[in-house]
Every structure is written in C-alpha cells, then in structure tokens.
C-alpha cells in the first residue's frame, strides 16, 4: 500500500452489509493528487456500493472517508459535492429538456450558489465558462442541442463537463465508458486522463474494460466480494495470479466486453442500494 503524507482521499475501514451479507468489508486506500486510480472487480464485488458510500449516497456501517483530512461520512451527496467531489454515473444522468450548454450552466450556477436567482435568464449565467468546459470535452459544437436527443457517447462527455464545473479536486467516475463503442471508450478515457492531468484532479473510477484500465490508470485496486484483494501498478495487478483467478473464476476474462447486469444498472440509476 502506497503511503502518502498528504493524500487527497483517505479511506479507512469502510464497511457495509445488507441483510448480513458483506457488500464492502474493511476497505482501506489512499488517493494522491492528480492520480488516476482504477477500482476493478467482478460483478457484485461491491464497487458501486463503495462509490455510493464515498459521495454520501449511502451511509457506511463503519469506517471513515476523508477528503484532505475532512471527514465525509455523515454528509449528504450535496455537501460532498460542495467540497469539490464530482461524480459521473454508470448510466448518464443529465437534464434531457435542456441544451448541452444549459446542463453545464446548471452545475456552474449551483457551484456559485445562484440557483434561486429569479430574474436574469439562465442562459446568461456563466455562458462563457460553460462553453469553455464544453470545448475542453469536445462538445462545443453541440452546445445548443437538447441533451434528450444526444448520442450516448456525447452524453458521457457532457457529464464530464458537468463534473468539472465545480473545479473538483476529486472525480468519482462509475463505469465512465459503459455502453460505449470500443473506440469511443478509448477516446473518452484519453480525454479524461488529459484533463485531470492538466488540472491535477484525482480520479477514482470503476471500469469493466481492462484495455481502458491498463491504458490510463496510474494504479489499480481489485475488489472481490467486498474485500480489497490486490492493489498496485497496472502491470503488477495484471500479473497477480489471485486476480487472474478471480476473473477466470467469475467466468470472465480480462478485456471482455461484458455489460453490467440489469439489476446493477437499475440500482446505479436510482442511486439506490443493493437490496
């Protein structure tokens, strides 16, 4: 385990069980500034549960989550976001009846605490900032299109722009490339990696596509049945026989193009729990 003197995120003893089943058990890890950390594991390993505890959607049974020394456990997702933690979802969550630019503007407006402004048009709030963010994710040309009609890959980019709106120190990305074509995945992760490096944002992401994981992460953690079973550089993890066994044992291979099961999808979409 890497020991860092001043980590952005420090997670200690994080645990959660549902009806006696340990979904997440005693998970410990750190995340450095500007680091891309991948969290992988077979379906049902507890990745989404872990994520939901990090940003306050789900209260952990035990453990601590510290953002730059500040305890996040007990906070609502809103409060966590205000401290500079952005989040993208496994299934995109955008405002379908708004344009791409307005989606980003909403995040900016919330960031600047202007949501109760009653008079000036939404479109006139932080328009330049929104366009700059969209430009950075390659969506500037589609800024005036409705999110409801966008292609899925484009929605992922919009989400990324939205997540960047509050100048986060930390991004939590749940399956950022799920549901995308292979080439799109690589492009999106390359884009993400570029952005977080230039802004020195730390990223924790889960991912099924091992090509994406090994191409872009600085470090990889493997979760199995709620426990952290391996952790290290992509190369080291790839070589770990235990990890190989988990994936083979789960009937799955590295690089497989598997889709998350329907139940997981629904849970993530609802921000809900594994019932």
């Amino acid at each position: 385990m890497t020991n860092v003197s001043n980590p952005v995120l420090a997670v200690r003893g994080l645990s959660k069980s549902f009806g006696g089943v340990h979904a997440v058990a005693d998970v410990n890890f750190f995340l450095d500034a500007g680091e891309l950390l991948a969290l992988i594991g077979p379906n049902g390993a507890g990745k989404t549960t872990c994520f939901n505890m990090l940003n306050g959607q789900l209260p952990p049974d035990a453990g601590s989550v510290k953002l730059q020394g500040r305890e996040l456990v007990g906070m609502t997702p809103r409060q966590v976001w205000r401290l500079g933690v952005g989040r993208t979802f496994q299934i995109t969550a955008t405002f379908a009846s708004m344009t791409v630019r307005e989606n980003v503007q909403m995040a900016l407006i919330s960031h600047h605490k202007r949501i109760r402004a009653l008079w000036r048009r939404t479109g006139d709030h932080y328009a330049d900032e929104a366009l700059a963010l969209l430009d950075r994710v390659g969506m500037a040309e589609q800024a005036e299109r409705a999110c409801g009609v966008l292609a899925y890959g484009d929605l992922k980019r919009v989400e990324l722009a939205v997540a960047l709106a509050n100048e986060p120190q930390l991004l939590l990305m749940d399956e950022p490339t799920a549901g995308m074509a292979p080439q799109e995945r690589i492009d999106l992760m390359a884009l993400t990696a570029g952005i977080v490096r230039e802004r020195s944002i730390s990223v924790l992401f889960t991912e099924h596509d091992m090509d994406v994981v090994f191409a872009h992460s600085d470090r990889v953690m493997v979760l199995n049945r709620g426990e952290l079973v391996a952790e290290g550089s992509p190369a080291a993890v790839r070589a770990d026989p235990l990890v190989q066994e988990i994936y083979l044992g789960a009937g799955s291979t590295f690089g497989s193009d598997e889709q998350p099961a329907a139940t997981t999808t629904a849970d993530a979409a609802a921000g809900g729990t594994h019932a």
Binding site: N55, A93, M98, S110, A117, T122
Partner: peptide, 22 residues
C-alpha cells in the same frame, strides 16, 4: 427562464443529477 425555474426543471428531469451537483 431564470435559474430558479431551471433548477426546478432540472429536478424533474433527473433528481439524481440535481443531487450530484449540490
């Protein structure tokens, strides 16, 4: 048309996203 109304629309479109932007 102002942020107040847009925030309301946003909540209708995606409560999850609204929560995630604070």
């Amino acid at each position: 048309f102002a942020p107040f109304g847009y925030t309301l629309r946003a909540g209708r479109d995606s409560a999850l996203r609204v929560d995630a932007i604070g």
